[in-house]
Design a protein around this nucleic acid. Sequence first.
RNA 1: GUGGAUGUAGCUCAGCUGGUAGAGCACCGGACUGUGGCUCCGGCUGUCGUGGGUUCAAAUCCCAUCAUCCACCCCA
Length: 453
Amino acid sequence: MAPKHQAPRGTRDLLPGEIERWQWAEDRARGVLERYGYREIRTPLFEDYELFARTSGESSDVVQKEMYRFKDLGGRDLALRPEGTASVCRAYLEHGLGGRGRIHRLWYLGPMFRYGRPQKGRFRQFWQIGAEILGTGAPGADVEMIALFVDLFAAWGFGELAVLVNSVGTPDSRRAYGDALREWFGPVRPWLSPDSQRRLETNPLRVLDSKDARDMLIWSVGPGAWLADEEEDAFKLAVTRTYSKPKPHLLDFLDSNSSAHWDAVLAGLSALGIATEIDHGLVRGLDYYTRTAFEVHDRSLGAQSALGGGGRYDGLVETLGGPPTPGVGFSIGLDRVLLALEQRGTPLPAGPAAVFVAAMEGTRAEAAALVRRLRRVLAADWDMEERGFGAQMKAAGKSGARLLLIVGEEEWERGDVVLKDVGDGSQRPVPVATLEDVLLEALGTRPTETRAR
RNA sequence: GUGGAUGUAGCUCAGCUGGUAGAGCACCGGACUGUGGCUCCGGCUGUCGUGGGUUCAAAUCCCAUCAUCCACCCCA
């Protein structure tokens, strides 16, 4: 058990038996996206390093420590893509899509790469499916995006997921909010966890979703509901002083346009009956987000519970040197979706051979030709090793085929073949001339879809 | 990048305080060269993750390294 090579850390092979789940999930998603009128776009797996550094933000974790950055033999500074939106916007500009109709609805599916320590639901190569609307800043675009987002999960069989939503406003309002948070946390600052004290400087909004017990106590519970009696008086006093000022919410710092946009998005969502939950602490990890932000989580995934998320990114295309072009989008981690489905015990179909053809000594050549003929219309299998009849029957049983064709010498002479139903063991002669019709009939309307596992 | 746990057959795992590997499942073959899934019989697979050290002797103890898992950071 020490092979010379194994898949690089954080990557994995998807083998037959598991891949069927992926194909199923991809097919379901494709169906929803097409009905929504989105069109697929495929972009390179690597791009100029600068593209990601610019758009995600130099200070973001993705850029600072998670990029697969490399120089090619021509000295180009490249990186494996850590996310999809930047590439889509680059392609949009490069091919002048803006000049071919104002609004573009696009979707993509493919592997992304981030260098991080692997854990449950986190890989260095992971798959995302995502969608973008470029060219309109209308609240209706945000609403459609979230509806599409929710409907994808519905198509995968997630029933009761609540979407977390927030507005992160503009970079200006976020800055103002950060200052307000620093001020508000001032009195309790020494009691915050070391991480949060650091975050208060670098990214104050992150303090709000700290998992430290005391941080959570300070932010979410407030005075009057102490964890335990042993809290020191100085701490209690500090918390009380902190709460003498109202707890700041990002939504209160929005400019009037962003605020109106937010109200319109909420109204649109409720008109569609989409269950949402406002999460004042919801901040996205990439710098390019503006206004609407949303996420979906699943507890069964452990610490890495985010299944997908997205938001509006009105300044991104301009950052890339293009004309002002608003956009909204999301991406969903397929690895996590599949993991969550598995943990919910969702059964999925597998598709082995529908018909197995067994030959006798004198009919091997005829049987081989028959299999090839049948394979034009349905899934057929045979024993390519020319083993004995008993072995062929065994192989047929294992193949999962629902029907068995026995090409016996005597029947073949008469132009027949024996059709056996694996389920009930019944068998009857069938004319070779009309075999396909009989088989399709016996298999039902969907010939290639067979037993579920 | 930080912390903890774990690496024995294809899979799940046993192997007590050191004496040089085992079970179940899976797989292959036979009983059953014109009828499979059941049953019975037989068989295969291991540099005990890798490298080094201690010892007469290491799967077992020590160190390093790689990998996996879980958590932190962060995110999908």
